[in-house]
């Protein structure tokens, strides 16, 4: 390892593809992910860490669900809504899931329009995403109210294992907080997009280089992640 010239020569020299490309990038200087900005790299790593947080929550929930000797309340009954005369299991959760998944769609479109520098459409789609997210949180608040009205508390409930209420409020609460933060962030960013901050490189919080709408994509990463987590909560909490 004596004197050698730096290995990576200029961006314009074509880089090998596939596995060898990865090796070449990681053994090059300056950056390991060649086309990834600092902000995006940071978000990815944060999400990896957050994945561990949610995994721990879900694994803990599964452990207490299995360790408790009292029967677990039946989710399809607990989470049923009576609409008209009909008692429909899981209907609210189904709608909530649909809303959240749709919001991922609008978010993806916002990212797309962001890269085309269509400020109007980007901002509109971001606001639509925020609205869907807010709807989701609203429905969750409704569900919480309903359950609390029926006597569910973190420390007990009328139907069985006390851990039911504890895990429910803890996990949906933690996820709901993530969605709420996302909604706030989306609104702030939509305002910046609309004002054209990213075209004029106006100085400020989270305003990156001129002409770069990357922050929209970074917000999108977070948003899709929160959606994905919901799918796991849905499967493990409501369907199990």
């Amino acid at each position: 390892m004596a004197e050698t010239t730096p290995t990576h020569i200029g961006a314009e020299i074509a880089r090998p593809s596939g596995m060898r490309g990865i090796v070449a990038d990681w053994s090059s200087d300056q950056r390991a992910f060649k086309n990834v900005s600092w902000g995006k790299a940071m978000m990815w790593i944060f999400l990896l860490s957050d994945t561990f947080v949610f995994s721990c929550f879900l694994l803990s929930y599964m452990t207490v669900r299995m360790s408790t000797v009292v029967p677990w309340p039946n989710p399809s009954e607990v989470f049923a809504l009576t609409i008209g005369a009909e008692k429909i299991p899981l209907i609210l959760i189904a709608i909530m899931t649909f809303v959240l998944i749709s919001s991922s769609g609008t978010m993806a479109m916002a990212v797309n329009f962001g890269y085309r520098r269509d400020r109007r459409k980007t901002a509109a789609l971001m606001l639509a995403t925020a609205a869907l997210g807010a709807t989701f949180v609203g429905m969750q608040a409704f569900e919480w109210t309903k359950l609390i009205g029926e006597g569910v508390r973190p420390w007990g409930n009328p139907w069985g294992a006390v851990q039911f209420g504890s895990s429910f409020f803890m996990i949906t609460g933690f996820h709901g907080t993530h969605v709420t933060i996302g909604v706030i962030f989306l609104i702030v960013m939509a305002r910046k997009v609309l004002r054209g901050d990213f075209d004029h490189a106006r100085r400020g919080f989270f305003t990156s280089r001129k002409g770069s709408y990357e922050i929209v994509e970074i917000t999108g990463l977070y948003w899709h992640f929160v959606d994905l987590v919901w799918v796991f909560i849905f499967a493990l909490f409501y369907l199990w």
Binding site: T7, S27, Q30, F33, S37, A41
Partner: peptide
């Protein structure tokens, strides 16, 4: 982490 991965000087490879 991001500084190490993405913010090194010219010629500074991981190795």
């Amino acid at each position: 982490v991001v500084t190490v991965l993405q913010g090194r000087a010219r010629g500074m490879t991981m190795m």
